[in-house]
Write a protein that binds this DNA or RNA. Structure first.
Lengths: 211, 211
DNA sequence: TAGATTGTTAATCGATTAACAATC
DNA sequence: TAGATTGTTAATCGATTAACAATC
């Protein structure tokens, strides 16, 4: 496979381009988009757009622009979104619960994003066994088995900070490869796992600087 | 005020340092922390930590490190977290609702972060008038009045993509200065408003690349 | 053809890392 | 004093921007 080691800064912008392209495709499938328009709608300069697209091997036509559908498909392909991606959530408290509902709702409406929530886990016996939109909350004890049984390699982590490192080590054992971490703590990534930290509080504090 | 134009990359790391320092302070107030330990716990190199802290004018003692409490206070001061920060949420659907509960819960437990949710807005008459933890959902029509009455300058935007640009223009009129945007669209920032975009879907797609 | 826009190269800019004298 | 760690300077690295010949 031709993963030519594209820098992460570029990868990070691809979902944003893709989001814009989906919108353009709805309005005018079969049409073309320039780096100027795509950049405008993505918050990126036209030069940057061309540099990024050229880095991933997407090609446009001089004088015209990029074919919307082809470019969209290219991006989906690179981001692995042309296959079904199964996701589990660990930690179904306030936040995990909300994220679960959000994903279910969003990817129900959404056309064909192959992002599918397949499992929920918690270690609190009081909520294990409950259901969210038909998905049962499993005991964290059975995590490893469920992961291979259901075949998900991506996990959303919404447990308390104190438990997060322990849980991520379990994820590693279970063959998980990517983790979106909502716990307010920086985790040491075990070998073979990619972690992205995200924290509403951190975002708010960052913004607070600009008040 | 000494806002010496600190680059945003640095500002972005400050809340993370602060988060670590709060933890350290609980365990050993009055103690000192080295750039090595702080970096370790923040996912940043020691050199970077020292560069960042020096940029904001924080000082440590050679051979010892940085005083935990003093550094924490310095960070809070720079991030404006030594004053009360009032926040409103616009759009109380699935996501806005979850964010509201999350903030209320988190800043109840939290010691003394002066981040306070003071208002909720929506334009759907069916939910206007409802309450979340004692905070009423107001009609978006009265936004501008409420903003100045309650004195919040920061807003969390959780409306559908189609409405986001319109709403942010209203925010501008109402004197809002900072917006955390959850709508899956890049917004043109009106003069005087700082916008940070955040989108769970974008984060998941970004991670999907590494599967 | 004339006008528009790509793809790429070179120039610029800024951020990270390395190194080490100063200092507790 | 000896050992540790800061604060800063210089070196490196990488990302963004500008510019423009090639091409539709």
């Amino acid at each position: 496979m031709g993963k030519q080691n594209i820098p992460d800064v570029i990868i990070r912008r691809l979902p944003i381009y893709l989001r814009v392209l989906e919108g353009l495709y709805e309005d005018s499938p079969g049409d073309v988009v320039s780096s100027f328009e795509l950049g405008e709608k993505s918050g990126v300069t036209p030069a940057q757009v061309r540099k990024d697209l050229s880095a991933i091997g997407a090609v446009g036509k001089p004088g015209l622009g990029y074919n919307i559908e082809a470019l969209r498909d290219k991006l989906k392909n690179i981001l692995n979104l042309d296959k079904e991606i199964r996701v589990g959530i660990i930690g179904v408290g306030n936040l995990g619960h909300a994220v679960a509902r959000y994903i279910i709702q969003r990817y129900r409406t959404e056309r064909d994003y192959h992002l599918k929530l397949v499992a929920l886990f918690d270690s609190n016996p009081e909520i294990v066994g409950q259901c969210i939109n038909g998905i049962a909350i499993d005991d964290m004890k059975g995590f490893s088995g469920k992961a291979s049984e259901l075949g998900f390699r991506m996990v959303i982590l919404a447990v308390p900070a104190e438990e997060a490192q322990t849980v991520i080590n379990q994820c590693s054992t279970a063959g998980i490869e990517a983790v979106l971490n909502f716990a307010p703590i920086h985790l040491r990534a075990p070998r073979g796992i990619r972690i992205h930290d995200t924290d509403l509080s951190v975002d708010l504090m960052h913004l607070a600087y600009y008040l």
